Computed example of a mutant assay.
Amino acid sequence: MMICVLLLAVSPALAQRSFELNLWPQGAPVMSGDAADTAKVYVFLPRKSTGRAVLICPGGGYASLALAKEGTDWAGFLNNMGIAAVVLKYRMPHGVKEVAIGDAEEAMKLIRRNATRWNINRDDVGIMGFSAGSHLASTLATHSRGDAKPNFQILFYPVITMDPAFTHKGSHDNLLGKSATKKDERLYSNDLQVTRVTPRAWIALSDDDHVVMPANGVNYYTELYRHDVPASLHVYPSGGHGWGILPGFRYHNLLMLELESWLRAF
């Protein structure tokens, strides 16, 4: 019931073109530690489509999801630009990394499988993430192949590295487990996985973020630049962590203008 209210609250005009789908109707191939946790997508289709779509991965330290301010509340902004918004409710990994990553990859494939029906260009599907959701988004951008790989990435105050010296400890422990191997920590430090075929990126964070060190996003940008991947880095003077689309964020209007400008540039 709460989900229905959430979807309808975005905009009465959008409600007719909004629906939810169970991501694994036949059952997920990899189970999490919580059998009751179900992966879903909430789909918002624009009335006039440009063919572009964005898969949105809310944050929450791989322990919970900020489903509104980092998910469904973005549908209106994207739909008004003619962009389909698909919000992913991914399962919490509980130390089994394949759970959340598998959900995100399946959601990307789902969008492309339904490209004709949803009036989407299969070659113009991006991914947007927030905090730990940005780690998930950048994992697909740097690890995934074929239909699971996004064409562009949008990252807000991202967790990028799994290096214990710089990572967000909760995200690290919840994704890889408290006894993660050095091999996995390096493999899922996504700044170390950037190549020349990593998709273009837009990155935003606050200089005074004391939850996720700004070095995460800055180092990722540096590696994108070093590998000739088009990228745009926006560091706002204040705001801390977790502002999402909240208008109370001091630089909210500037943020929205800069993101819209970037999305219209390619």
Rank of each mutant, 00 (worst) to 15 (best):
T195G: 01
G60Y: 10
G71F: 06
D163A: 14
L7D: 00
N79M: 06
D73T: 01
G51R: 14
G51S: 12
G76K: 13
A53K: 05
S49V: 13
Q16N: 10
P58L: 10
D124L: 13
D37S: 10
E98T: 00
L233F: 04
L21M: 07
S232M: 09
A180W: 04
A35L: 13
M1Y: 08
S64H: 04
L7I: 12
L14M: 13
L67E: 00
M92W: 09
L67N: 00
R226Q: 11
S171P: 09
P46Y: 14
P199W: 15
V96A: 03
K182P: 07
L176T: 12
H172L: 14
A137R: 00
L233I: 06
N121D: 15
Y251P: 03
A215P: 02
S238Y: 05
A115H: 04
H252Y: 08
R47Q: 15
R117Y: 08
L65Y: 06
P158W: 01
P214H: 09
T195P: 14
R226N: 13
S144D: 02
Y251R: 03
E105L: 05
G126W: 02
T50C: 12
H210P: 00
H241A: 07
L6C: 11
T50W: 12
R196A: 14
L14Q: 06
F266L: 08
G177F: 10
A215V: 12
T72N: 12
V30Y: 01
E98C: 02
H94A: 06
N151G: 15
L88H: 03
Y157S: 05
N219T: 04
A215M: 11
M108N: 09
I245M: 13
L45R: 01
D103K: 04
R112H: 08
Y220F: 14
V159P: 08
S144W: 06
S179A: 11
R17H: 11
P12M: 11
V159I: 04
A215Q: 09
D147C: 03
R196H: 15
I101G: 03
K149N: 03
L6Y: 06
M81R: 15
L259C: 10
F44A: 07
A148S: 10
L259G: 10
N114C: 01
T50S: 15
F166L: 13
H143T: 08
R91S: 10
E223S: 13
Y42K: 09
R52G: 04
G242Q: 05
A53F: 06
L8C: 13
G71M: 01
P46K: 07
V96S: 00
G244S: 05
M213G: 01
A85Y: 04
V43I: 07
L233M: 07
G60P: 08
A9C: 10
A84C: 02
V43T: 10
P12T: 03
S189I: 02
I83N: 03
V211D: 09
I120N: 10
T72P: 03
L78C: 08
F152Y: 08
M1F: 15
K178I: 04
A13L: 09
S144N: 01
A84W: 11
E70R: 08
L8I: 02
